[in-house]
Design a binder for these strands. Structure first.
Lengths: 239, 239
DNA sequence: CGGCGGATTGAGCAGGATCAACGGAGGTGG
DNA sequence: CCACCTCCGTTGATCCTGCTCAATCCGCCG
């Protein structure tokens, strides 16, 4: 609605090893700077885009934390992912030329706005960028396969364990602790993502605490036994 | 393994309104013919590609029916989709340069092999193709959002109803009946896709039969009351 | 005809949902 | 600064959907 606009450059962004320019050569990197039009700030609770809105751009998260969610007419609602710095958001909009999900900031955030027609234009010239765009989309498809596996075949404890491991691994890649994290989302949002009710999420946290696998104080989580979590995920309860 | 190779052209394929060349102009269509290297036959039960195999090509299904499935080390297995004529398969392989799921033919099938480097090359020249490739990938992402919604928030009857409606709608777009279909997959495969056990799938079918919503004879399904299925999907049982 | 894989159906069980009460943290306004 | 309110999280009791285990049936193929 009221986009703050600040000129910026990918070429000296501290996220360049994670984000859009990942793996590009210096001269290609400079070309990418042409893609990022402006930055935009989104307040906590605000939406970056909404289901039904016209699709124009992809967004690279610079700071902050988002959730994306889809909804049915009857008001049901499913969180399809949580996104953090360096991740690309908005890919759902390409196919229909308008967005099919909401992107909501779970904390104050700033994103780089990348008009999609510019991305397409530039990736016709810069092969590495073209390939990178394809990889980003493929990565999202593979990620979703993982979520389908989780939703389709895991029990509550396995889901939560997998969720925690995934979060902490991504945070670690961004220089945060391997064992400590602050959840940016409510129990209900975790539950929606994992296909569980919020009470079940809460109970499962408590169970992990009882078993000395984690410490939980509200949204602060400290992982005491990563291996235990891994064992829970890989326990072939079925079969 | 033993690819049958037959030269072909998209430009006179009867699937061109559904498949890769969708919406391209005649002159662009001719360029696309360069992309499809060969066709390949896959026998029922055979795999088009497997988890771990090197990624080289996308595949357009000409005839037949596939499932794709991912697996965990501990042997758990999740069907991530069913694909039919005109649909593109293999997008998962781009990001890691090797496939992360299996594609298994559920009936004798024939696919058009499209080497991905050729696709990238050509889509640098043909803007419409470039955009189409992006749309195909985005479409897959949106489809998976839908599956996540299904797995995360629907009960058994809603899942099966949504599944049947989706299948019959896609078949109808290919010129088949709106009300009659032959399932190419087992109850177990349906169950895996829908996050249910095969017995639950079977029971839910029986329930629909009792309610005169469908007729079921083994894999032959006739939909008697499409609206009832739609109502089941949209029944806001939660809230 | 017999064997086998797939489908159906039944009985009993349990994991997670639902309903409900309560507690604690953080924000707001008097 | 404190009182209040609201939102979020925890925990308990009970219920029910879908899972498990098991028997049987059906259609197909050799």
């Amino acid at each position: 609605m009221n986009p703050q606009t600040i000129k910026v450059a990918c070429s000296n962004c501290n996220l360049r090893e994670l984000c859009m320019p990942m793996g590009l050569k210096p001269e290609e990197l400079e070309r990418i700077d042409e893609v990022v039009a402006v930055r935009r700030k989104v307040k906590r609770g605000g939406t970056l885009f909404r289901n039904g809105e016209k699709f124009t751009s992809l967004y690279a998260i610079r700071t902050g934390f988002f959730k994306t969610c889809v909804a049915t007419e009857d008001g049901r609602d499913q969180v399809t992912g949580f996104q953090m710095a360096g991740e690309i958001i908005g890919l759902d909009g390409i196919v229909q030329d308008h967005h099919t999900c909401d992107a909501v900031a779970l904390e104050d955030a700033e994103v780089c706005v990348m008009p999609f027609d510019r991305i397409e234009e530039l990736s016709r010239e810069v092969t590495a960028l073209q390939h990178h765009v394809h990889k980003i989309m493929s990565r999202e498809i593979v990620r979703e396969h993982g979520v389908m596996l989780l939703l389709g075949s895991m029990r509550a404890e396995e889901r939560l364990a997998a969720f925690l491991l995934n979060l902490v691994q991504r945070l670690h890649a961004r220089g945060f602790s391997q064992s400590e994290l602050v959840l940016r989302m409510t129990r209900e949002e975790i539950g929606s993502y994992l296909g569980l009710k919020l009470e079940t999420v809460s109970r499962t946290f408590s169970k992990f605490v009882d078993e000395n696998i984690v410490e939980v104080k509200q949204r602060h989580v400290r992982i005491l036994d990563t291996d235990a979590l891994k064992r829970i995920v890989n326990s072939q309860t079925c079969q």
